[in-house]
Design a protein around this nucleic acid. Sequence first.
DNA 1: ATGGTAGCCCTGCTA
Length: 270
Amino acid sequence: MRIATWNVNSIRSRAERVGAWLERTGVDVLAIQETKARDDQFPHLTFAALGYDVAHVGYSQWNGVAILSRVGIDDVATGFDGMPSWGDPPSAEARVLSATCAGIRVHSVYVPNGRGLDDPHMAYKLQWLARLRDAAQAWSAAPLPHALMGDWNIAPEDEDVWSMEYYIDKSHVSPPERAAFRAIVDAGFVDVVRPHAPGPGVYTYWDYTQLRFPKKQGMRIDFVLGNHAFAERVVGAAIDREERKGKGASDHAPIVVELADPLGSRSSPT
DNA sequence: ATGGTAGCCCTGCTA
């Protein structure tokens, strides 16, 4: 089974590309971030034609998260909504969408962008991450495999950015953000991709401007964190850097995780 | 100090 995450930067502008990628890679479950669409605007037909069921929660042109699955999708739930009083109309987009797909609890996560070190959005981001940590604590020890996957808007280590000098006074690398990320790991989750994509210089996001991609100047800010039950089934993972290339690419690359069949399943040799 | 690009509710704001 293949499970993946991708910040697509607008599902409407990239539906065909995402569909072609799903077909080509054989991904069974995809967590999507930044759909930038209301529920009524989501291109359901494109994915239904490929055999995927869709759960989506969107609100405005910002953010919005989805889960596509061709192995079933049950118990859909949303949580961790955006700061309710901001914006006009008020910003209320959910930033975590959860669903159970083939026995795995999948959480499509979009961590709020802190924008700047002194910006009110940064304080909100840190409070939001503390709430997510509390939820993660409860999920970590569950016998059900849990995957917290998406765009974390945090680069946890210095080697996860192309230049610390460039980012030192900016969002994504500050000690409080890194501590908040670490607290979720310490709650009982593990980065299941890193062992299969070791750094430095391994990134998941490259800014559209200033030729960041061809200059290999990116950031590693997209992660798949698994609880123990999930992590023990991971047999491989890869950041699909090829998908960042060419006209019409998202500014994030997709990440694919390969899972072994669950213990005791029929496909085990007898 | 600015701009570079892509997306949206598009001539301004967010990422």
